[in-house]
């Protein structure tokens, strides 16, 4: 995902391209998961500031994560991964226990972050087979160490340079702000739901009973007032950093080099590359495993890029349809039978 050893392309002045005169610099997040302690202060601060309603009180069995996913009612989500070795998400028995409940849910578990999962069938309590190792760091000597590790990551809307949700929105409710972020105008959205399927990250969702699409606004109101977004403000370890995107990219590169220097070879940046399938993120991440372990797509491409190809095929099919119609009646007009 990273390409630090090449000349960076000229920064895309997103806001200017979207019709703003003299816009402020593009703002974003850099979420450094290597210093996240999983306190969820970001989730709470976001809910409080943005009046995001409850998404369902539940014990999911996903380690300490009881939010599950980003959604209409969760604009920050802290993922917890218990690992015995890199490339796996949680002890197998734990995944198996959770997965059955996800599959039985009406939306396959993707309702998490918006609505709670239905209660487990029969109210049965699943044995999660919690790891029997002690808390990391309990002991002091090298001999106490195991291959167990905990990954925590505070996920958020990626505020893509090429945003699938924004592109497909038919009302203009989703728009690009002067800060280069992507925001839903709540007085415009009519809840058509197209953005939900247009997002390759599963971020945006429709809020039940309210009927409108909801997601992180990167605290547009706070940015307008020159303030730091609520989640970044509340983060006690500066795992969530906020600032001009150019600066954050440099910071992310430095942090990655530092970690690689310390032997953390698995560290990688996510959403850093402006040449990726969405033109780079407005919110970058430093991950300690492959993205899919955190529930992130490894190399998503904004569906809009297929639009020319799709419309060419639609045009050809429409022409075939029209020709069939014309042919059917031409054969009747010139044929022997009426």
């Amino acid at each position: 995902m990273t390409a630090t050893d090449r000349t960076p392309p000229p920064p895309v002045d997103l806001a200017r391209r979207n019709g703003y005169f003299d816009p402020p610099p593009r703002m974003g997040f850099f979420t450094d998961t290597s210093v996240c302690i999983g306190c969820k202060a970001c989730e709470v601060a976001c809910k409080e500031w943005n009046h995001v309603p409850e998404d369902g009180l539940d014990l999911l069995g996903m380690s300490m994560d009881n939010t599950g996913m980003l959604g209409a009612n969760s604009w920050r989500h802290v993922a917890f991964v218990e690992q015995r070795r890199p490339g796996t998400a949680g002890p197998e028995e734990q995944t198996l226990a959770v997965e059955a409940r996800l599959r039985a849910a009406p939306r396959g578990g993707s309702e998490l972050g918006t609505t709670p999962l239905p209660t487990a069938p029969g109210g049965a309590v699943a044995d999660l087979g919690m790891p029997t190792v002690g808390r990391p760091g309990d002991g002091t000597g090298a001999e106490t160490r195991t291959d167990f590790r905990w990954l925590m990551e505070s996920d958020v809307c990626k505020h893509c340079t090429e945003a699938g949700c924004l592109d497909v929105c038919p009302t203009g409710a989703l728009f690009r702000t002067e800060f280069g972020t992507v925001v839903v105008q709540q007085d415009i959205c009519n809840g058509c739901g197209y953005c939900v399927s247009g997002c390759p990250y599963g971020v945006i969702d429709r809020r039940p009973h309210d009927g409108r699409a909801q997601k992180c606004t990167l605290c547009y109101d706070r940015l307008k007032g020159g303030l730091t977004p609520a989640c970044a403000k509340a983060c006690p370890t500066e795992s969530i950093q906020f600032g001009p995107l150019d600066e954050l990219r440099e910071r992310a590169d430095r942090r990655l080099a530092e970690l690689h220097g310390q032997g953390v070879a698995e560290a990688e940046l996510y959403g850093r590359d402006p040449d990726d399938g969405v033109g780079g993120h407005g919110s970058l991440f430093l991950l300690l495993d492959v993205p899919e372990v955190y529930g992130l797509p490894p190399a998503p491409v904004v569906p809009t890029r297929s639009a020319p190809q799709i419309w060419r095929r639609v045009g050809a099919a429409a022409a075939a349809f029209a020709l069939a119609g014309i042919g059917a009646f031409a054969s009747a007009a010139f044929g022997d039978h009426p």
């Binding site: 996903m62 959604g71 734990q94 939306r107 993707s110 399927s197 899919e292 372990v293």
Partner: peptide
């Protein structure tokens, strides 16, 4: 690999 088998995308 996945996050507890949870979907990556929102169902429509």
């Amino acid at each position: 690999p996945s996050y507890y088998g949870r979907p990556v995308l929102k169902t429509p």
